[in-house]
């Protein structure tokens, strides 16, 4: 049941989307999000959507996997859409009781849904095609300038990659502990909210203990290999921009520019 979590999932592959430098991909997502938020009307949205479709096609990720990622936020999307639908002033279409649906409201709600959906799909595409390790590598490298103002960039990246690394381990562990407590008659399904919360204690206590134990073991193992933070550390795989990175970056920059220009003309 817990195995269905898609967070931080990575589908290995060898497409252009997989081979791009992780830094490039992070910048691409930033450009894409910027374009998405600058888009004003159908033409701009269509352009951004086209870029998304092409990216998905190139990455070989099954569209179903992207749709699955939307599931946790369906509620938020619907909620915002309804609010936008009902509370946008403008040219009246239908009105009943205290609500008035306007033409602007319909458009606003539609664009909102589109924006959210595409936002989630785009960022999921990043995690689907980039392994957590290279993602943190890329992030560390992009944030490197911040070291000048004493931001512990390397340490943050290390924390992030360790956290990502342990998600599956902890999920597996939770499953095991749940089974073991169920074998002793623990009941997680019935009862009111308070009883349900109480039923979690037999899972959380062992889980925390084992998380701390693992953290301790990992710390010792890292020290045994003489890890002492980022200073003077070199990398096995040095990140290097290739021609394809520049090309794709140029393409996305052009998309953002086009969206800005189109927005200027109200398209």
């Amino acid at each position: 049941m817990l195995k269905d979590i898609t967070l931080g999932q990575f589908f290995p592959g060898n497409t252009l989307a997989h081979r791009l430098d992780p830094r490039t991909k992070i910048i691409l997502v930033v450009l894409y999000i910027a374009a998405l938020f600058c888009a004003k009307y159908f033409v701009s949205y269509a352009l951004v959507a086209l870029v998304l479709v092409i990216s998905v096609k190139v990455s070989g990720v099954h569209p179903k996997a992207l749709v699955k990622g939307l599931r946790p936020i369906v509620f938020i999307i619907c909620f915002t859409a309804i609010l936008n639908l009902l509370y946008t002033p403008g040219e009246e279409l239908v009105s009943f009781w205290i609500f008035t649906i306007t033409k602007e409201g319909v458009l606003q709600a539609f664009f909102m849904v589109l924006r959210f959906t595409m936002l989630i799909m785009g960022t999921f595409l990043l995690t689907y095609t980039t392994s957590p390790i290279s993602l943190t590598d890329g992030l560390e490298s992009l944030l490197n300038p911040l070291k000048k103002i004493h931001v512990p960039v390397h340490e943050l990246a290390m924390i992030m990659s360790i956290a990502l690394r342990f998600i599956p381990t902890l999920i597996e562990e939770t499953d095991k502990i749940m089974s073991a407590q169920k074998a002793r008659g623990a009941d997680f399904e019935s009862g009111n909210l308070l009883q349900k919360a109480k039923a979690l204690v037999p899972i959380l206590v062992p889980l925390f203990i084992s998380a701390f134990r693992r953290a301790d073991e990992l710390a010792v193992a890292m020290e045994c290999r003489c890890y002492h933070g980022g200073g003077g550390r070199t990398k096995l795989h040095v990140l290097r921009y290739e021609a394809r990175d520049y090309l794709v970056l140029a393409g996305f920059a052009a998309m953002l520019a086009a969206v800005l220009v189109l927005g200027h003309f109200g398209l």
Partner: peptide, 19 residues
């Protein structure tokens, strides 16, 4: 649940379920 009371199962490394 009644079945689980009648068939007791001790998992591998059961000490990790103490709480």
């Amino acid at each position: 649940r009644d079945v689980r009371f009648q068939v007791g199962l001790v998992f591998q490394y059961p000490e990790y379920q103490l709480f």
